[in-house]
């Protein structure tokens, strides 16, 4: 196998893969776009969001991009959402509901997890959907994540998988991994894997934390990006991901 062939191997990723900037979906937050190598959510790759507790703003984070996609008449899908995605709130966020498919396999059966993964993979592979968001249960394993990553590559789609925070410890083939947790200022975003880019920590401030009047519009405030040097150190709770993260940082600097 020569070097060219080796570089094309899907299992191999290059440390500083250049993104052409065309195939990207803006996150809607300039500060977050700035730290992502694609200047937005990566297309053709899996984004893993590891959430400490539900309800901290982990879904709101995606709304600006889902809003933009559905308004461009692109299809997005929510697979196995944990509760009813509430139409009035989605309308408030500007989403065109007729472009958002809900895939809701029967819950609490032996097949439900398998079906949710299968459906996500099919939707990603189809090339019809621009974004597919899966709420995975604890049972998701690396092999399944790899399949999602490959399906996203195949369909040039943006795959998002919500996973429990514990899974941050395990390795994953995803191109972008973020740990989302609550902080005093809002939701803290720790990027623990950023293919082709640096690692960062950011804070996402939800409107209700700052504005007491609650206008009803979800208007995300711009994040306050921490300086790159302090990014890793700023993770407050002792996350398992800190130590491998530091070694990565030093390695790239050398």
């Amino acid at each position: 196998m020569n070097l060219e062939a080796l570089l094309k191997h899907p299992g191999l990723w290059k440390g500083r893969q250049q993104h052409d900037g065309k195939e990207t979906i803006s996150t809607g937050y300039p500060a977050l776009d700035a730290v992502l190598p694609a200047h937005g959510w990566p297309l053709g790759a899996l984004t893993e969001l590891m959430v400490a507790h539900e309800g901290i703003g982990e879904f709101s984070l995606l709304l600006p991009s889902l809003d933009a996609l559905t308004r461009q008449q692109q299809w997005v899908a929510l697979v196995a959402p944990p509760h009813i995605p509430y139409a009035p709130a989605l309308i408030n966020a500007g989403i065109s509901l007729e472009r958002m498919l809900i895939v809701d396999p029967e819950k609490d059966t032996t097949e439900s997890d398998k079906n949710a993964f299968w459906a996500t993979e099919q939707l990603l592979r189809s090339g019809v959907f621009s974004a597919v968001i899966l709420w995975a249960t604890k049972n998701s394993n690396e092999r399944q994540q790899r399949r999602l990553q490959l399906a996203a590559e195949h369909g040039k789609a943006w795959a998002v998988c919500y996973r429990p925070q514990q899974t941050a410890k395990t390795s994953s083939p995803a191109g972008l991994r973020m740990v989302l947790q609550h902080s005093d200022h809002g939701m803290q975003i720790d990027i623990i894997k950023n293919r082709g880019g640096r690692l960062h920590s950011l804070t996402h401030t939800t409107p209700s934390a700052t504005s007491p009047d609650n206008t009803g519009q979800i208007t995300p405030l711009p994040e306050k990006p921490h300086t790159e040097k302090n990014a890793a150190k700023n993770i407050k709770t002792p996350l398992c991901s800190i130590s491998p993260l530091k070694t990565y940082e030093t390695r790239t600097k050398q």
Binding site: L43, Q74, W75, Q122, L123, R125, S126
Partner: peptide, 22 residues
Amino acid sequence: FVKSRRQQNSFGEVIDKLCSRL
């Protein structure tokens, strides 16, 4: 869905496939 980047299947085909299992 003209805008989708890689058109391998039609929307209806994907939906039918999913419906037949789920």
